[in-house]
Design a protein around this nucleic acid. Structure first.
Lengths: 227, 227
DNA sequence: TCTCTTCTGCTTGTCTGAGGAGTTGTGCTA
DNA sequence: TAGCACAACTCCTCAGACAAGCAGAAGAGA
């Protein structure tokens, strides 16, 4: 027995539009009929259509441009990419991080402002302090790498980096617990050299150092997690 | 100097609300002020406030219940990373693509199976054929690069690559239209050399070639789109 | 005093009509 | 043919009106 449907018309209209989009009635990038056409077609008022469109725009399915029309920007906006990360192999995540962070280190070397360099050095110091406690050390390490990526001044790289860290945190803590080797002098030395390369504005060296460090991490992890 | 703000008021209002939510002005599950209160507070009409709320509702941040009010359902708008891409500077997107694709090319050189190599060569051939029509050429080019990334056998890199392409497609078509130089022999030669490096299992050369190609693309685009 | 009902005020939901602003194609002009 | 003005779209914003729903206050009955 269906309850009385108390769903707002705007929600129903949005759902209806999404269905028609999914069914392929309008291809990707194509223009939807105008609001004034759509309204009577859906049997609702113009403002209701507008609210439905806004709702889908918030989900990234539609985008409206004044004067020209409403366009399909995605056939569906499912499965945030973080879901992919969560499901993927740890090794795959680290490889992606190598890609992101290597390039970010190079860009940071080119662009870092004095203020950003100070922030990186501060993060490095913090990382050196927190050697005793496991989780704290991992977080400080992440904070350091984050400061490097931030200096690259590219919002996309930063966003991607932030997407990786949650998945990596657990794996790294686990690895450090079993291996026990963390925060040793050689490790700290490698990070310090990276900071130097960024300070010297040497993109290629920064990239190489960053890659080498993460590659080593990947190999260690590969041994720990088995497969 | 900031361009004239051509952002719709509803978008601005949504952004403003999101900021206030993130700042903790309203706790999770708390009720927002009424639309009629919010409207003069934001300096816009009530329908505009409603559209802003709808937009955030579509992103899962707010939920409105008739008769009782609008409530905060999530403090963190996950902001699907594709939304970040859509909003970002083209140059930033290409930089991210350099990061992804450079590494993917290197991995592809290490891991490619004979079948994947065949697929890459086939895509290269297709790319060479489609020189006359603009959009078709861009799509064939994307297809070629996609085949390289696929050979890296890393689902995350593939996912990220797919996230970039829609945003880049329009920009590249636009660039080629204004510049006109596309599909020339030098361009094709560069791609052919990349395939060779992958065939020879030479990761470093593959990475360097891939980077160089995209870097050149970035510089061209920088000139076209103005800033 | 307690409980149930009713009512009142506030909230969001929906529609309409009116302009404003931006885009795009058409047709005229030089 | 190239350039420009214009008209016909489009979405954007506002204001006002009324409906629908919720929640707490006020009142009636026990």
């Amino acid at each position: 027995m269906a309850q009385v449907k108390r769903t707002p018309l705007a929600d129903q209209a949005a759902e209806l539009l999404l269905e028609r989009i999914r069914s392929g009635e309008w291809a990707l990038g194509e223009k939807l009929p105008g609001e004034t056409t759509l309204a009577p077609q859906l049997g609702v008022g113009r403002s209701t259509v507008r609210e439905a469109i806004r709702q889908l725009a918030g989900r990234g399915v539609l985008a409206s441009r004044q004067g020209s029309g409403v366009f399909v920007t995605a056939l569906d906006a499912p499965e945030g990419w973080d879901a992919v990360v969560r499901r993927s192999d740890i090794i795959a995540v680290i490889e992606a991080r190598i890609a992101i962070e290597g390039e970010a280190a190079a860009l940071a070397a080119e662009r870092r402002t004095p203020g950003e360099l100070r922030a990186i050095r501060r993060a490095l110091g913090l990382r050196a302090e927190r050697r005793s406690e496991l989780a704290a050390h991992v977080d400080a390490d992440t904070g350091f790498h984050r400061s490097v990526v931030a200096a690259a001044q590219n919002p996309i790289l930063a966003e991607l980096f932030d997407g990786f860290t949650p998945r990596l945190r657990d794996a790294m803590i686990e690895m450090l617990r079993t291996r026990g080797a963390f925060g040793d002098d050689a490790d700290h030395e490698a990070h310090a050299r990276l900071v130097e390369a960024i300070a010297d504005r040497d993109p290629d060296r920064a990239r190489a150092l960053s890659r080498a460090h993460l590659r080593a991490l990947a190999e260690t992890l590969e041994g720990t997690t088995g497969k």
